[in-house]
Amino acid sequence: MASAGSHETYYVPEQTKLPIYASIGLILTVFGLGSVLNNIKASEGTTFSTLIAIAGFLLLAFILFQWFSIVIRENHAGMNSDQLKRSYVWGMAWFIFSEVMFFAAFFGALFYVRNFAVPWLGGEGGKGATGEFLWPEFQAVWPLIENPSNAVFTPPHEAMDVKEWTPGFFAAYLPFWNTLILLTSSVTVHFAHTALKAENRRGLIQWLSVTVALGVLFLVFQVIEYTEAYGHYGLTLDSGIYGSTFFLLTGFHGFHVTLGTFILSVMLARSIKGHFKPDDHFGFEAASWYWHFVDVVWVGLFFFVYLL
């Protein structure tokens, strides 16, 4: 419950041009992107659409940069009340919740496919007639190395799962290392936080740098893994539902890691500039929450996509 004092300093920002330009930027981005996709499908030229998308994106990025700078400047100028700061905290928390639900949709899809659709196609369970009459050749095994129709969707030759539990194989198993990397980075970002609270700026910068480095390392491994998947395993986005779920889940996660790493780098830059105070550093905290969230999603991925 807010105290009466915090109301008096409540700060209603002046009018702002940022949102409407951000909206224009965003709409140009997606309109351009949509046109590019449609052009590709219709085998038309994409130059103009690409330009629109890029212009929109630059505008959006520029505006967001301005936006965050203003927020930071206002905070440094002492214009933000405690109450407003609490609003930011709530805002970030609920934003992360919305991200959780976004991933939930894809995890739900994976769950449904593995427990219902694929068994039915393979002739098991309540809709077994499906497999019996329509896909007599198809066997329900996960990961799918044969698709119901291999003519329409070319299946992978191999899956990305653990082949054999020998130490040698395991040592070369990237998802395992990636799990370790992300878990470690969650710890290092926490150390950075502790250092920040202890007014240990060197510690903050060091631990945060390590975290960013780990994020980059994760992404490098992810790229290696994708190359592997496309090159050696024949596992692609269009190789059937196994590839579809694999790439959408890991891909969106990877995209979030990219974003998280970027945010942490910004926080690193801000730490170097000395933006954060032991009792006032929500920007940093929000970034670290985001990072922990990305980490938790990965643990889910490792479990449900790779191991099970």
Binding site: L37, I40, K41, A109, Y112, V113, F116, A117, V118, W120, L121, L134, W135, L144, N147, P148, S149, V152, F153, T236, L237, D238, S239, G240, I241, Y242, G243, S244, T245, F247, L248
Partner: peptide, 19 residues
């Protein structure tokens, strides 16, 4: 599914329109 060839909603690739 429309642009990148995934098969979430296509039985031929192991997906399901009901999903």
């Amino acid at each position: 599914d429309v642009h990148f060839g995934t098969s979430f909603f296509s039985a031929a690739g192991g997906g399901d329109p009901i999903l």
